[in-house]
Design a protein around this nucleic acid. Structure first.
Lengths: 108, 108
DNA sequence: GTATGTACTTTGTATTGCAAAGTTATTTTA
DNA sequence: TAAAATAACTTTGCAATACAAAGTACATAC
């Protein structure tokens, strides 16, 4: 017995999903930076609930990708790491959001 | 010089992102199964562009999670692996889509 | 002066994800 | 009809991740 050919709900095609942004912790970091313009390590640690080590390495990865600027300075005699999205990072997030949104909405 | 307190665009909070579905290859597989109801290995291989080995292991993972049913049979003397979402898988995808969508749209 | 806290970074490990190679059966070609 | 190619997978080996525990440096509290 032959099988009917696959009928037409068009297949969901592979999209470029930026792996740097797609990782849950980093998505959260980037999303926050997107709305908040500038923040610091401590704020992100609180809102993302990441451990110190984990947050630290994810920030490095985002920096290496050129998606964030990291400024380390001393404020009130204690270190403060300030973070903001670069233009590139902002764009990457928008692109990511667009492709994810379209992938998810392609599906009725 | 003191810094102004973080002003209010509310932070994007961590959401439960199902790691089984969040992986790009598997997201594509699940999205396809969601629209197509039933397919087979060969179809998925074509539309996802995954290598055989890669597709195979992702399917196993989805099966272990209880998100898909895998039926292996012989059709015209050659093996056919048929795939469909379970109720659980369907639900998991909907939940995933909801939380991702809300995370992404929380961001103006 | 030592213990506690803050703001991180480095290290060690277990888990992924991937493709190359392997398996089993079936056609095709010579 | 034996050898080669094709189909539909699965298993294996390895390189890249992600995570938390431990470590560092400095400051304040006791």
């Amino acid at each position: 017995m032959r099988r009917a050919k696959q009928t037409s709900p068009s297949p969901v095609e592979p999209a470029e999903i930026d792996p740097v942004i797609h990782q849950p912790a980093r998505l959260l970091i980037v999303a926050n930076l997107y709305v908040v313009e500038e923040t610091d390590f401590v704020f992100l640690k609180r809102t993302t609930q990441l451990t110190d080590g984990n947050l630290s390495t994810h920030l490095m990865k985002l920096e290496e990708a050129g998606y964030i600027d990291v400024v380390k300075e001393f404020v009130d005699r204690r270190p403060r790491t300030s973070l903001r999205l670069t233009a590139r990072g902002r764009e990457a997030f928008e692109t990511y959001r667009a492709s994810l949104t379209s992938l998810l909405s392609a599906v009725k």
